[in-house]
Amino acid sequence: MNIVVFIKQVPDTDDVKWTASNNIDRVNTESILNPVDRHAIASALKLKEQYNARITAVSMGPNKAAEILKEAIALGVDDAALLSDSKFIGSDTCATSKVLSAAIKEKFPDTNLILFGQSASDGETAQTGPSTAVRLSYPFITNVSEITEINDNNITVISENEFEKITYTVKLPAVLCINNSIYSLSLPKIDGYIKAHDYNYKIYNISELRLKDDETGIKGSPTYVSKVYRHDEYRNCLMLNTDELLNKIKEVC
């Protein structure tokens, strides 16, 4: 059983810096592992424990993103790869999913299960996982909270929508987008840190993924930010004490 977990490095602070072209300036902003991707890693580790799976963490981003790959290794992931090329810069979810699906096709073709976080805290589009699945013609389930069973052909998972908690059986290979799930990570152990310290992750660039120049980055992204501005619809705020406030509340109650 081979599992790939896609993880993303996201800006941490509220104080995000911007480049002249209205993209986030990732160099000058603190970065962390996307919070919900921890649950994806935790789900993979659970499967490793139960079914002897081999887990590879993969991230697309600048060299700095190697930080979260090392973190994944320390947490118990077996291998890690970074998809990095200056031609990937500025990719929207459409272009990102092209790169991620190319990585599976070219570098990890015998993957049985692909895990994503439900959404990245910076863009929160929740599109990357489904789009990658569609490009690979794999079935996908979003909002997965639990993996109950897996065998050579199928995986059984629980996913919630607005109204129901549903158990699905899905043909492998498949894509799952893991939400704040029941699995949580324990802290890395000391041998994890040692492994991470010495670990040489692989780096793949655009030609190694057999992608064309115009398929990724800004050129390969159908959407672009045309303008960023402050959008202020302010009201006139009257400051009150609790008694006055209570009277205002009572007017409505």
């Binding site: 995000v16 209205n22 986030i24 959407t223 672009y224 930010v225 045309s226 960023v228 402050r230």
Partner: peptide, 15 residues
């Protein structure tokens, strides 16, 4: 709204 939550972005699509 865009990153940080203090700004708004207008997004266009080429395709």
């Amino acid at each position: 709204p865009t990153f940080g939550g203090q700004l708004t972005a207008d997004i266009l699509c080429k395709t």
